[in-house]
Amino acid sequence: MKIKIPLQLVELEDDNFHLIVKSVFEDETTGFWVVDTGASKTVFDKNLENQYDSEEESSDQLHTAGIGEKPIETTLARLKPFSLGKLNVENQKVALLDLTHINKLYSKATSLQICGLLGGDFLMMFQAIIDYRKKIMILQTKK
């Protein structure tokens, strides 16, 4: 089944565009995600502790590479259920990072609070298609 998710285009600086998708967590709070086709792993803000459960077996820290030269140490967690439009997402594994710096950057252009980055793992799982003209992301479910 194909699910169309509306996207918001945010221009942080001249010709610097980011795609944002809105989610709703099971406690009815709203979260905004950056669709990050360059990120291999989905990332979530570690400061939003009520929205995830830490992975017990992942006592090892995961090393991720950002655009900088130094690896970033992070831990893994599973998100509590949330929805993106009509898509219900359960057991999404994420890397936890402090996204305070991302939200400071976004506060200059918008009032949206970013909860995470949807990475390649998520986009591949749902065979995402991004339509910039229509500002939608089409996700494919197995149902």
Rank of each mutant, 00 (worst) to 15 (best):
L97R: 12
F44Q: 05
T75S: 13
V35D: 00
H18Y: 13
L7F: 05
M125Q: 12
F25H: 04
N47P: 04
Y52H: 08
K4C: 06
G31V: 12
E13V: 08
D53L: 15
I3N: 05
T37K: 03
Q140N: 11
S107W: 11
T110V: 05
E73P: 09
A39V: 08
D131F: 12
L99I: 08
I130C: 02
I5Q: 01
T141K: 08
H18L: 07
L48Q: 11
V10R: 01
I72R: 01
D45Y: 03
E28T: 13
I5L: 02
L99Q: 04
L19Y: 15
K142M: 10
A128C: 07
E73R: 12
I102R: 01
E56T: 13
M1C: 04
E73H: 08
S54M: 13
L76Y: 07
L96S: 02
E69P: 01
S40T: 15
K80S: 03
F32Y: 15
A109L: 04
I130W: 02
L79Y: 07
T75Q: 10
E49F: 13
A109Y: 04
K80Y: 07
E57I: 03
G66E: 02
F32N: 14
V35A: 00
L105D: 07
K142Y: 06
L117M: 07
Q8C: 09
I102Y: 05
M124W: 13
T74A: 14
Y106Q: 00
D36W: 09
V34D: 00
A77P: 05
N50K: 15
F126H: 12
L123Y: 01
Q113C: 06
D131P: 07
K134R: 12
V34E: 00
N50L: 11
K135T: 09
T100Q: 08
V24I: 13
K134N: 11
H63Y: 15
K4N: 10
E73I: 10
Y132M: 12
K80C: 01
L99G: 04
G119H: 01
D36K: 05
Q61C: 12
I129Y: 10
S23V: 09
Q140T: 14
E13Q: 14
E49K: 14
Y132H: 12
K4R: 10
I129N: 09
S83Q: 10
L97G: 03
P81L: 06
I136Q: 04
L96H: 08
M1Y: 04
D53S: 15
A65L: 15
V94G: 02
S111W: 06
I114S: 01
K134Q: 12
A109M: 04
L7T: 02
